[in-house]
């Protein structure tokens, strides 16, 4: 789809590769610890809560609410400088963890705390697909 992605791209490590592989298939996955029954975000090779090893990947509902946000008017970074104003947000997933994202496919003025949102994906490169959130349909 997109031929020239001029925003930053993620680096992928072994512990985060399943996440990026899932994004390419259009699935948002997070991690769940079998030992302490906790979800965690961002993905990592250990359970951040009990430091155990029994974390497994689970599919998120992809739905959540805006925990907080800002309408960014100034950013010097190539890719974002041309995009202002854009919405930087922390979205709380239904599973209870909060992740950074942009709220897309809406007027920045319409975004508010508590707004229901759902995941959507954009293909950055043949290897990288990035999750964003849009108003829930």
């Amino acid at each position: 789809m997109t031929t020239t992605w001029n925003k930053p791209l993620p680096s992928i490590a072994g512990e985060t590769k399943p996440f990026w592989d899932s994004c390419r298939r259009g699935q948002l996955v997070i991690q769940y610890c079998e030992d302490c029954d906790e979800y965690q975000w961002y993905p990592r090779g250990i359970c951040a809560d009990c430091w155990g090893e029994n974390v497994r990947w689970v599919q998120s509902s992809g739905r959540g609410t805006v925990w907080t946000y800002t309408v960014t008017q100034q950013n010097r970074t190539t890719g974002f400088a041309e995009m202002v104003p854009y919405v930087l947000a922390l979205v709380e997933l239904e599973e209870g963890v909060r992740m950074f994202t942009n709220i897309v496919e809406c007027n920045p003025r319409d975004v508010h705390i508590g707004m229901a949102v759902e995941v959507t994906f954009q293909t950055a490169t043949p290897q990288i697909t990035i999750p964003y959130f849009k108003p829930a349909g």
Binding site: K7, P8, L9, P10, S11, I12, A13, E15, T16, W41, Y42, P43, R44, W67, T68, Y69, T70, T72, Q74, N75, T77, G79, F80, M83, Y86, L88, A89, L90, M99, F100, T101, N102, I113, I130
Partner: peptide, 27 residues
Amino acid sequence: VLDPSPDSFEELYGLTTVGLYAMIARR
């Protein structure tokens, strides 16, 4: 080049220092 984590789960979305404080101000 972003570190695999946490950068790669954050900087894709245009974080700025002022933006990260603004989000707490909004909340």
